[in-house]
């Protein structure tokens, strides 16, 4: 397994900065099926990680474990100093610091865009409606759709809905953003607008873990690319090394397939 860590975030980590995410010897099963096996992963503050791998490799499950949408049966996950595997109130604390964006947007269809964005800050952070709306408009401007604030999700395109989902997550001012295949439900013409929004976040220093097959994004944005297969981290490396000199045969096969697929 390649484990060369050369990005600024890793240099920071080596200099003694505490990882913002620590995943130690995590195993997870769905019934008798082991979906994660022996996962160890440290993420430095500000680090941008892309997780890729074939369908069923456990990559979505892994990032869902980071805000405890999935429970692990073995090992430890510590996020921003809080041990998630201890359960209880820790979960709520962590979820306030970890934003998540899903493949299918998951906006509330009966609420306007603005109402979608202010719901969690008002309920979880205790903000007033005016405060929450001010923050929501700030982030809707950030994702370049403030004019859609009073529309409903069904009136927006997929790309716009996904940008709203990102704004909604940002309204909680999270320290970490998790993206679970954020562009895979979009038409090709809409992928760029979402990736551009994510690139903007990355440029601002947000800690990001992104499950995606957008290898162009991985190449240009990620500090580290992780390849998973059969529930294990098979290989991880900075993108230039990952794409130029993949060490594992499974990684090479995957890259061959996906790069060929995207080229056609």
């Amino acid at each position: 397994m390649t484990d060369t860590l050369q990005s600024p975030a890793h240099i920071l980590a080596e200099a003694g900065t505490e990882p913002i995410i620590r995943i130690e010897a995590v195993d997870k099963w769905y019934g008798k099926f082991q979906v994660l096996t022996g996962i160890n992963l440290n993420v430095a503050p500000g680090e941008r990680i892309v997780v890729c791998g074939p369908s069923g490799s456990g990559k979505s499950t892994l990032i869902r474990c980071i805000n405890r949408l999935e429970v692990v049966q073995k090992g430890r996950i510590v996020v921003d100093g809080i041990d998630l595997t201890a359960g209880g109130k820790n979960v709520d604390s962590v979820r306030q610091e970890v934003g998540m964006v899903f493949q299918q947007f998951n906006l509330f269809p009966h609420l306007t865009i603005l109402q979608n964005c202010i719901l969690a800050p008002m309920r979880s952070r205790g903000l007033s409606k005016d405060e929450a709306e001010a923050i929501a408009m700030k982030y809707l401007k950030r994702v370049r759709i403030p004019e859609q604030a009073n529309k409903y999700p069904s009136q927006l395109s997929g790309g716009q809905q996904q940008r709203v989902a990102i704004a909604r997550a940002l309204c909680m001012t999270p320290k970490i953003m998790l993206f679970d295949e954020p562009t895979s439900a979009l038409d090709p013409e809409m992928v760029k607008e979402v990736l551009d929004t994510m690139i903007g976040l990355a440029d601002d220093g947000m800690t990001m873990l992104c499950v995606t097959h957008e290898m162009g994004f991985a190449r240009s944005v990620a500090d580290r690319v992780i390849f998973m297969a059969e529930g294990k981290i098979i290989e991880q490396a900075p993108p230039e090394q990952f794409f130029s000199h993949p060490q594992n045969e499974k990684t090479r096969n995957f890259l061959g397939q996906i790069l060929n697929q995207h080229a056609h």
Partner: peptide, 9 residues
């Protein structure tokens, strides 16, 4: 308008 968009709306 795009297959995903048309199926959505």
């Amino acid at each position: 308008f795009g297959a995903a968009e048309v199926r959505r709306h």
